[in-house]
Design a binder for these strands. Structure first.
Length: 384
DNA sequence: TTTGTTGCGGGTTGACCACG
DNA sequence: CGTGGTCAACCCGCAACAAA
């Protein structure tokens, strides 16, 4: 008597002594394996796993090859564009000059509490612009503190790389118009001397433009999608099978689409449904921490489905940023894990360059969103 | 190719309820 | 009665998809 084919097919589960030939569906007749066939036989599940492993191997090789090509290409481009860089830096200086010399320049009412404002204030100084002495001193202190924290790796959970990105090939670079608008918003600088009628909602647009960050639903959605796409780029580096806007996660709610991005790269053994959100700190429901408030709100929205999703092996994870680019701690953890996974896949020893690059791009998308929302709210005659 | 439908985003508003 | 929290409905635009 030869041994039965001991796979976990329905036949085996039902106590039938013999499985079917090969993949247990080819023939209705019981099949007894001949000794000569035994060495070639592959259990269906093993076969599938092997196939997945081969594919994974091929993908990894492909990504490593692609990365090396990209790196070589970037090196060549950088060499070729040194002259262009100088030209662009000059242009950036001109943009800042234009901004500073505009009638509503914020030079006299800066709140020097963040690295961003410090950066701008020090640029004023470098451009030989007049700043009150006390302001200059505060600016220098804040700038030094910001630099120190950047060098030490602190304060990296705020995506403000776009402030320093002036060259078109920098990952977080903004278009000049968007840059000026985003910096003005960030500084709380005036766009007008008095409140204006909002073009988007017919309400009142305050002179410093904060209203725009809670209005303009079209630009808001567009910006959200841009941020989602930037996150997706990082996710795809970590997990080639990741998908956007996946439907049908739950049989009981087939129309539900809680995941902006569905990936296996964030939590081991679980599929993560990443839901991107951007919150305004001065919105009425923002609370003390707008990112935490939005995380709670998002989880409450899907509270009914969370257990069912978990039963399917899907973990719902909101990824929340403030509209100034600050990450919620959960977002930081998820991005770090994604960057680690991506670096591992690409054969890179350090995940931090990948993380920095992704953060810069996400920060730029958030800043671009703010600028777009402001543009949508400004009355036509006030738009530059 | 156009049009319609659906779900979602990020917010506001108002109803409702519990509590002091 | 005032306050604060929760919840649903709503706004308008976008993206994806299906149907015409």
């Amino acid at each position: 008597q030869r041994p039965p084919c001991s796979c976990s097919s329905a036949a085996a589960r039902n106590g039938q002594r013999w499985g079917r030939a090969g993949f247990h569906g080819i023939s209705e007749r019981p099949h007894i394996l001949e000794p000569s066939e035994m060495s070639d036989f592959v259990f269906p599940r093993h076969g599938c796993l092997q196939e997945l492993m081969f594919k994974e191997k091929a993908w990894t090789a492909k990504f490593i090859r692609k990365q090396r090509e990209e790196e070589a290409e970037e090196r060549l481009k950088l060499q070729a564009t040194d002259v262009a860089r100088e030209k662009w830096e000059l242009k950036a200086e001109e943009t800042i000059m234009k901004f500073v010399n505009s009638p509503s320049s914020p030079a006299n009412h800066l709140d020097l509490t963040s690295s961003a404002t410090a950066f701008i204030a020090v640029n004023f100084a470098q451009l030989n612009l007049h700043l009150p002495e006390s302001l200059s001193t505060r600016a220098c202190k804040a700038h030094r503190a910001a630099r120190r924290s950047r060098v030490n790796g602190e304060d990296e959970t705020v995506c403000s790389e776009w402030l320093w990105a002036v060259h078109p090939q920098d990952p977080g670079v903004l278009e000049p118009e968007a840059y000026v608008a985003a910096v003005r918003l960030r500084l709380g600088a005036g766009f007008a001397t008095e409140p204006l009628p909002c073009r988007a909602c017919k309400g009142v647009l305050d002179p410093n433009g904060r209203h725009a960050l809670c209005c303009a639903p079209g630009e808001s959605t567009k910006g959200h999608n841009d941020v989602r796409d930037e996150v997706f780029d990082l996710v795809r580096m970590a997990d080639a099978t990741a998908e956007k806007e996946v439907l049908g996660l739950l049989e009981t709610a087939p129309g539900l689409r809680p995941a902006d991005i569905l990936t296996n790269a964030v939590s081991p053994g679980l599929t993560s449904a990443l839901d991107v959100g951007i919150a305004a700190p001065h919105a009425s429901h923002a609370g003390a921490d707008c990112t935490e408030a939005m995380r709670v709100r998002k989880r409450a929205t899907y509270a009914r489905f969370l257990l069912a999703l978990l039963a399917e092996g899907v973990e719902y994870r909101p990824l929340v940023w403030s509209c100034w680019g600050r990450e919620h701690p959960d977002t930081t953890a998820a991005l770090t894990q994604l960057a680690r996974q991506a670096a591992r896949r690409r054969g890179a020893s350090d995940f931090r360059p990948l993380l920095r690059r992704a953060r810069a791009r996400i920060g730029a998308a958030i800043a671009r969103r703010a600028a777009g929302m402001l543009r949508a709210c400004m009355p036509t005659q006030h738009r530059e």
